[in-house]
Design a protein around this nucleic acid. Structure first.
Lengths: 161, 161
DNA sequence: ACAATTTGTTAGGTATGCCTTACAATCATG
DNA sequence: CATGATTGTAAGGCATACCTAACAAATTGT
């Protein structure tokens, strides 16, 4: 019992339970199944594993609760997710949905060191808005130059294969 | 035959073969096994899959070659890897080894859109070195403030467990 | 309170992707 | 050119993680 090693899948369950707890207060297996869009049977298996690893407590038809270790693991994953999402959204100007989807996958595999650098760099960029502003403006200008309405006179074969 | 859908694992094989080809010229199963540090048996299985997907051509004891589709897929993965690695190294100041390890995992799951933003942003940062210089200098100052050489008088237990 | 609905579990199945062992085919060199 | 080393394959196993179907237990509504 209490094997501790978490696969990406189990981390997703912990994260989902954590988020659901913040919203719902009480979380049951079915909630997790709906959130992660997987079968009740798979959730049942996964919850058994989390119980045997002593990360949650849970009895059939009852409410899921974290053990102290489980809560700390869940928060860890959740924070990583948010760090990545924030970077994608605020530095790279990615939509919240796409930022979240990518964070969900990358959160399980990125190294602590890179994550910490991403966090610091994101903070720095958000404290110096001119960096992102200038970058974004540069991109817009570039886009307008290549998509200009009036074609340049000499560029007669711009449409050829 | 020619199913086209590539798992992360198969992408790794294509990438490894591509890299080995650039170095060795001729690549055989054993080379792939050594590069990826997996058994010859597993490589044998994987190569069969790649052959049935028409991404490589290969006969027992012979040399592995890409089909046009396979080469294009391999290059795609390789380029994604390099884009991520470059970002980690040049923007986040991560060591080449760690940058590469993380790129290897993330390259299979990141969205095209985020990747393209990472590429552009990396280029921008490298064209405006003052951004990274200032950022890094800020980090150094912070570090020196908290790690000052002369301990503050009251901090008598700074070496205790 | 009991029937219908919801929720959970079990059993059995699929797919991926790795492993080891044992054997087969090829290669390389004396 | 034979034999020992290398390389490849086949068979059988393991672990993860999902599924459906069938059934069981709990909950809900009237």
């Amino acid at each position: 019992m209490a094997d501790k090693n978490l696969t990406a899948g189990l981390e997703d369950y912990l994260e989902a339970i954590f988020i659901a707890q913040e919203e719902n207060k009480t979380v049951k297996g079915i909630d997790v199944a709906r959130m992660l869009n997987i079968s009740r049977a798979s959730v049942s298996e996964a919850l058994s594993k989390l119980v045997s690893k002593e990360l949650i407590t849970y009895e059939s038809y009852g409410t899921i609760s974290f053990t102290p270790t489980g809560l700390s693991e869940a928060k860890k994953v959740y924070n990583i997710h948010n760090t990545l999402k924030l970077f994608f959204q605020t530095v790279l100007n990615i939509s919240p949905e796409e930022a979240s989807e990518n964070a969900c996958k990358i959160e399980h595999i990125i190294s602590d060191n890179i994550l910490s650098e991403i966090k610091d760099f994101t903070d720095y960029c958000n404290n110096h808005p001119e960096i992102i502003d200038n970058y974004r403006q540069g991109k817009d200008n570039e886009r307008n130059l290549s998509n200009r309405k009036i074609p340049r006179p000499a560029d007669s074969d711009s449409k050829s294969k």
